[in-house]
C-alpha cells in the first residue's frame, strides 16, 4: 500500500499579514523528484456539522511550492482547520493537519503605505489597495500650532481620493491607519507625511 511511504509534510504554520494568509510547511525531499502538495480546509461549520468533508484550497490543489495562499479560502471570522499532503506520482503521504486552528482575527495589521499629492489646490491621498476588508482612517491637519485635526474614512479604490482644499504657501500633514471591521481591529498610524503648497501665502 503506497499511501504511507511518502512522509507527510511537517511544521505547518500560517503567516498572516493585512488579512493575507499564507500556509507554509517544510518541503518533503525525495532526491531528483518533484513533489506536489494538496491543501484542504474546513471552517467551523464544516467541522461541527460535516466533519468528514474537506474543501480543496482555491489555489493549491495541487501545488509544487511548500506554501499556499489561503486568503480566498478564509471567508468568515471563525476558526479554520487546514491540512496538507504530499504526492509523488501514485504515492501519497498521510494528511498533516495544522496543530492550532487558524482565525483571521489574529492577522498582523501594518500601517498603510500612502502617497500624498496635490492637484492644483486639492490635497489628494492615494492608499494601497489592501482588499475589500479594509477601511482607512485618514487624519490630516494644517502644519501650524493649534491646527485642528480632521478625520476622513476612506474606502479602497484605484483613484486618489480628495481630502481637502489647501491654501497657497501653507503646509499640510497627513497620516493614516487601516481598520478591518470583520475582525474589529485597526493598525497603528503611519508616519505623518507633510507637503508644502506652492504660491505665496494669502494676505490675511
Amino acid at each position: 500500500d503506497g499511501a504511507a511511504v511518502l512522509p507527510a509534510p511537517q511544521n505547518l504554520s500560517v503567516r498572516s499579514v493585512n488579512m493575507k494568509h499564507v500556509l507554509t510547511w517544510s518541503p518533503v525531499i525525495v532526491p531528483e523528484e518533484i513533489i506536489h502538495y494538496s491543501v484542504e480546509y474546513q471552517g467551523e461549520y464544516e467541522s461541527l456539522y460535516m466533519s468528514h468533508i474537506w474543501i480543496p484550497s482555491s489555489w493549491c490543489s495541487p501545488t509544487q511550492r511548500p506554501e499556499c495562499d489561503i486568503t480566498e479560502d478564509i471567508t468568515a471570522t471563525v476558526s479554520y482547520s487546514l491540512r496538507v499532503r504530499a504526492t509523488l506520482g501514485s504515492l501519497t503521504s498521510a494528511w498533516s493537519t495544522l496543530k492550532h486552528r487558524f482565525n483571521q482575527n489574529s492577522t498582523i495589521l501594518t500601517p498603510p503605505r500612502m502617497e500624498i499629492t496635490m492637484d492644483g489646490f486639492h490635497l489628494l491621498i492615494k492608499l494601497e489597495d489592501l482588499g475589500p476588508h479594509f477601511e482607512f482612517f485618514v487624519s490630516y491637519w494644517r502644519k501650524e500650532p493649534g491646527a485642528k485635526e480632521h478625520v476622513k474614512v476612506v474606502r479602497p479604490g484605484v483613484l486618489p481620493v480628495y481630502l481637502e482644499m489647501v491654501e497657497p504657501g501653507a503646509a499640510y500633514c497627513v497620516k493614516a491607519r487601516t481598520f478591518v471591521k470583520a475582525i474589529g481591529r485597526h493598525s497603528a498610524f503611519s508616519q505623518p507625511e507633510c507637503v508644502k503648497v506652492q504660491g505665496e501665502a494669502l494676505p490675511l
Partner: peptide, 27 residues
C-alpha cells in the same frame, strides 16, 4: 464621481451619497 484635469492629466474620484457637490480651488 471622477474628475479628470486635462492639463495635469490627473484623475481623482469621490464617492458621494448627496446630489450636489462642488469642486473648488480648481485651476
Amino acid at each position: 464621481v471622477s474628475i479628470y484635469n486635462t492639463r495635469s492629466n490627473r484623475t481623482w474620484s469621490q464617492c458621494v451619497t448627496n446630489h450636489t457637490l462642488v469642486f473648488s480651488w480648481l485651476e
